[in-house]
């Protein structure tokens, strides 16, 4: 608990791995206790055991659907990140472009994406592409905003330094501003990760074919609440894994920030 034992290896493992696991165990136990104590009908809220049973009934099917959703999330997220970075760099490079484009981008971001799902169906039909587009639409904005915030947050002293060295715009950008922006970029990526999953699920629920969103949509038709819960748990696990993956990449790329 104190700073004294924070350094020793066992206590570090305990804080980094033990405590999160303990948190999960307490939460699941609490969920279980509530469903058992109040005799809640599994049709409304299934107990953890019901969910696990459902999963074990058709594990290959559910994992297959998870993989489908995950693929859509990853492809969409990659496009969103690439697009977001390019747009942010362009906007940060030119005041004029920024002034012109910002209202449009904010407007696009403000449109409820669920409302676009039927349109995407009209434009792209069934299959992967409307879902991937939904992922991009939902998750690109935080990447732009945070990257721009990062690119414009170069401290005055570093700006004066590059000016006094007569560094070119490009040198300043590559050697100072871009790297300086990285921690902020990662803030945006961490916000965008769960949004990407939400985007994929919106796409699949509104326009179901395959994937966990389609499983949830189908479970409603067959009154199979535990199946919906199993799909939700799988989505949550996917979200956590992706989040920690992004945090891990941040650790690798931005060691000076994490070390503070």
């Amino acid at each position: 608990m104190t700073d004294f034992d924070a350094g020793s290896r066992t206590s570090r493992v305990w804080t980094n791995v033990g405590l999160p696991i303990l948190g999960v165990i307490i939460t699941v136990t609490g969920w279980w206790a509530i469903t058992a104590a109040f005799h809640i009908d599994p049709f409304y809220v299934p107990s953890p055991a019901d969910v696990v049973d459902t999963f074990l009934r058709t594990p290959e099917f559910l994992l297959q659907e998870t993989w489908t959703t995950l693929q859509r999330v990853l492809i969409g997220f990659a496009i969103a990140v690439a697009l977001g970075l390019v747009i942010a760099v362009t906007l940060a490079a030119s005041r004029t472009v920024e002034r012109m484009a910002m209202p449009i981008l904010a407007a696009i971001n403000a449109v409820p994406k669920v409302a676009l799902a039927p349109l995407l169906l009209v434009w792209m039909g069934f299959g992967d592409s409307p879902k991937i587009v939904m992922v991009v639409l939902v998750s690109f904005f935080p990447v732009i905003v945070s990257t721009m915030a990062g690119l414009t947050s170069t401290p005055d002293d570093l700006q004066e330094l590059t000016r006094s060295l007569k560094a070119s715009w490009w040198q300043t950008f590559v050697k100072v501003r871009l790297t300086w922006a990285l921690p902020q970029v990662f803030v945006g990526l961490k916000v965008a990760t769960p949004l990407a999953i939400i985007g994929a699920v919106i796409g699949e629920v509104v326009n179901p074919d395959r994937g966990l969103g389609s499983v949830i949509a189908g479970s409603g038709a067959s009154n199979d609440t535990p199946l919906a819960f199993a799909a939700l748990v799988l989505l949550a696990v996917t979200g956590v894994v992706l989040f920690y993956l992004v945090a891990g990449i941040e650790r690798l790329l931005v060691p000076w920030r994490v070390a503070k």
Binding site: P155, L158, E160, L161, S164, K175, T179, W180, W256, R257
Partner: peptide
């Protein structure tokens, strides 16, 4: 050929 030293060290943290 003129070098500046600022009040802050102005180092690149990475």
């Amino acid at each position: 050929d003129v070098a500046m030293v600022f009040q802050k060290p102005a180092l690149l943290p990475w």
